[in-house]
C-alpha cells in the first residue's frame, strides 16, 4: 500500500483485494460482539478535515476511526479558521503540528488531497474531492458487490447518470476495472466527459439496452441544477430516459442488484419502490462503509511510525 489513498489508481489489484479482505475479516471479527471496538490505533490521531458538508461520509470515517480506538478530531471549514481565510496549506501545517497521523479530507476542489499530501508527513485519505474521486466509496461499493454476488471478476456493472461531475463514478470505473469487473457507463452525452473514450468502459446512451445484461446497476445522484445549465431539458425528461423505475427494474436479471451512493433523489434518478426493493443495497452500502474505512485506516496507519 502507498502512504496515502488519494485515488483509486493508488491501489493495484493486490492492494484493493487486501482492503476488501481486511474489511471482511474485521466485519467477521466484530459480528455479534457487544464491544465493537479494537485497540489497533490507540494513541493515533485522525483528523476529519471537511470543507464540504457531508454528514454521512464524516460519520462513517469517524466511526471507523473510533472503532479502531484512534483519537478523532472533526475539523469543518464552517466556523473555523478556514472561514476566516486560512489557506489549505496553513490548515494542514497546523493540524500536523498538533500531531495528526492521518487527515481524511473532503474538499470541493479536485486534487486538494494531492496538494495536502505534499505538505504533511502523515497519511492523507481522500474522502471526496470536487469532481475527481471518492476512493473509499468505490471500495465499499466493490465490497458490497462481492458480498452480494460472491465475486468481482467478470461482473457487469452499469454506472448510470451524471458521470461528468461524479467523483463516485471516476473512482468506481478505475477500481472496478482493477478488480476485473466490466463497466458500462450510461448517460446522456452531455453528462459524459470529453475524453471518456480513453476510460476502460463501454459507453451507452440507452439505459433500456444495458439493463438486461447488467449484474449491478449503480445509479448516480443527478442534481436538478444541471438542468439550468442545459445538460438536459427537464427533470421529467431525464427521469423518463435515465431514471430507474419499477418497470425498468423488471428488465434486470434475477440476481442483479441496485446500488446508489446516496443521498438519493427519489423520483429523479431512482423510484422509491426500487430504492426500497430487495435488490437495493443502499442500506448495506452504508454499513459496509464503516468496515472498509476501518480497513483503510488500519492498512495506512497500522504499520507506520507515527508522524
Amino acid at each position: 500500500m502507498k502512504r496515502h489513498l488519494l485515488e483509486a489508481a493508488d491501489l493495484d489489484r493486490g492492494d484493493a483485494t487486501l482492503v476488501l479482505d481486511t474489511a471482511a475479516q474485521i466485519d467477521q471479527a466484530l459480528a455479534g460482539r457487544e464491544v465493537k471496538k479494537l485497540p489497533t490505533l490507540r494513541g493515533r490521531t485522525v483528523v476529519n478535515l471537511f470543507y464540504e458538508d457531508s454528514t454521512r461520509t464524516r460519520i462513517s470515517f469517524e466511526l471507523a476511526a473510533k472503532r479502531l480506538s484512534a483519537d478523532v478530531i472533526n475539523f469543518s471549514a464552517k466556523g473555523s479558521s478556514v472561514s476566516k481565510g486560512e489557506s489549505l496549506k496553513d490548515t494542514a501545517l497546523t493540524l500536523e503540528a498538533m500531531g495528526s497521523d492521518a487527515i481524511v479530507v473532503r474538499h470541493s476542489a479536485s486534487g486538494a488531497p494531492h496538494r495536502l499530501a505534499n505538505w504533511v508527513r502523515g497519511s492523507v485519505v481522500n474522502a471526496g474531492d470536487g469532481t475527481h474521486e471518492h476512493p473509499t466509496q468505490a471500495l465499499l461499493d466493490a465490497y458490497t458487490i462481492r458480498q452480494r454476488l460472491g465475486r468481482l471478476e467478470g461482473v457487469r456493472v452499469a454506472i448510470v447518470g451524471d458521470v461528468l461531475h461524479s467523483r463516485v463514478a471516476r473512482s468506481n470505473v478505475r477500481l472496478l476495472h482493477t478488480l476485473g469487473a466490466e463497466v458500462t457507463v450510461v448517460a446522456p452525452p452531455t453528462l459524459l466527459p470529453v475524453g471518456i473514450g480513453t476510460w476502460p468502459v463501454e459507453v451507452s446512451y440507452d439505459l433500456d439496452a444495458v439493463l438486461p445484461k447488467a449484474d449491478v446497476v449503480m445509479m448516480l445522484r443527478v442534481q436538478a441544477e444541471r438542468m439550468n445549465a442545459s445538460f438536459f431539458p427537464s427533470a421529467r425528461e431525464y427521469s423518463r430516459r435515465y431514471g430507474l423505475d419499477a418497470r425498468r427494474m423488471g428488465a434486470l436479471g434475477d440476481d442483479a442488484i441496485v446500488m446508489h451512493p446516496g443521498p438519493m433523489n427519489r423520483g429523479m434518478e431512482i423510484a422509491a419502490e426500487v430504492a426500497d426493493s430487495v435488490r437495493s443495497t443502499i442500506v448495506e452500502q452504508v454499513g459496509n462503509g464503516v468496515s472498509v474505512r476501518m480497513a483503510v485506516l488500519y492498512l495506512l496507519l497500522g504499520g507506520n511510525e507515527p508522524a
Binding site: 479536485s110 486534487g111 474531492d129 470536487g130 469532481t131 475527481h132 474521486e133 467523483r167 471516476r170 466527459p193 470529453v194 475524453g195 471518456i196 473514450g197 480513453t198 476510460w199
Partner: peptide, 18 residues
Amino acid sequence: AQMHEGDRSARLGLTGWP
C-alpha cells in the same frame, strides 16, 4: 475551466477548457 479539455481533464475531474 481549469485545464485543457481532453483525456486528462476527464480523469482528473478538472473542468475542461476546450
